[in-house]
Design a protein around this nucleic acid. Structure first.
Lengths: 212, 212
DNA sequence: AGAACTTGGAGAGATACACTATCCATATGG
DNA sequence: CCATATGGATAGTGTATCTCTCCAAGTTCT
């Protein structure tokens, strides 16, 4: 198939496909002439994958490229690919006050220890969580930090469920893709779900309690 | 205090403060002359609030303005403010295939019914979730949708914990701010937590299982 | 008092990102 | 055969978030 058909079937404009090829997100077509190339089904899937990460998962094009190249690299394990995907979706934090920051990092380390989690010191999610802790404190919302453990136990359950679902699959490639998509799209998924549950909880608390 | 001191104490550059005032995120100082204005402690807090939403919560300046004006408006209830905050953090979806889309929306409605949740038809989280469902399907990851109910029950628990924590507070303003920050920063919080738990789960599954 | 600096306000410029548009020398297809 | 499509490269667009510059009017230092 040529680029026009690829564009139609994947629902992506031709110039955008060219852009993605330039940026290294998808491989170019198989060259069959000086200005002709052929594309296959795998290009369609790859294109959908890119759109899922960029549009739905809100990854930048650069982050998407990193995740995809991790998926592509043949030598890396599922665990490694997951680490790269996590790094790509975790925003870098902006540093703040030294002492406050150190305290927050220690608090995160303490939580990890309490849970019995094995997490590398270098995992960027540590800093991300520490920044949240600092932010809540700084805004006088320290009482909300009491539910950190609720978040932790819930996260544990989600991770287990996700990994179990992926474990049922056959083939490493399929597992890798599932794990990465779980990481990238899972944020949006739990976010949307949280909002539905929150709307319901808020409804219960503030409407049914006030009859007439 | 003048703008220079405000800048130092809040950790925000002077031009950025001016920009935020222009954009209506923070009120201007109390005018005490043709080119003099005075700022108070409340400006510091407001500025920190803005930075938390923009930097940590990744809200756009426009979305931040909407959330803040909801907080400011005296007539609205906690439930209303929560709805506005939710709308601000929920990304608008890009439409796709009609039939597939309707099926996904129905699936979401079914989940909501199964859970016994009371959620408005207009809640944007419905579309967001439907888009996720469509995306997973489109990528051949429909088996991952089996854990939707896990996500739902977990979300329920989080919403309850959050509302309970806020319920302990005194004063409506304090509750409102807590609820909004829970909504806006909660996404980042569960995201970071999920990554830590996932790293641990992945470690367990793929490292301890392979001795030597 | 005079010099140097700061302020408020507004418009212009800078930077980054993710596309789009244009061009042109080939190919293709009805 | 000739309008249309293609691949590849370069340039341009739109959006968002600052950041810079300017100026007249204060303020602070000495």
């Amino acid at each position: 198939m040529r680029i026009g058909e690829l564009s139609k079937r994947a629902g992506v404009p031709v110039p955008t496909i060219k852009y993605y090829v330039r940026e290294g997100l998808i491989p170019g077509g198989e060259r069959i002439g000086p200005n002709q190339a052929r594309y296959g089904e795998e290009h369609i899937h790859r294109l959908k994958l890119v759109r899922a990460m960029v549009d739905v998962g809100k990854l930048s094009v650069a982050a998407t490229r990193e995740v995809l190249s991790a998926i592509d690299s043949p030598g890396s394990s599922l665990h490694d690919v997951l680490g790269i995907a996590q790094a790509a979706v975790t925003p870098q934090v902006t540093a703040g006050d030294r002492a406050v920051w150190a305290a927050a990092e220690h608090e995160v380390a303490e939580l990890v220890r309490r849970r019995g989690w094995v997490v590398k010191e270098s995992n960027p999610a540590r800093q991300a969580l520490a920044q949240l802790v600092v932010t809540f404190r700084d805004l006088g919302q320290q009482d909300l930090l009491a539910i950190l453990d609720d978040y932790a136990s819930v996260a544990e359950r989600l991770a287990a469920a996700e990994l179990a679902a992926i474990g049922h699959r056959e083939g490493v490639d399929s597992k890798v893709e599932g794990a990465v998509l779980g990481t990238v799209l899972g944020d949006a998924l739990i976010g949307a779900m949280r909002r539905l549950a929150q709307a319901d909880a808020s409804h219960r608390a503030f409407h049914t309690a006030v009859p007439g």
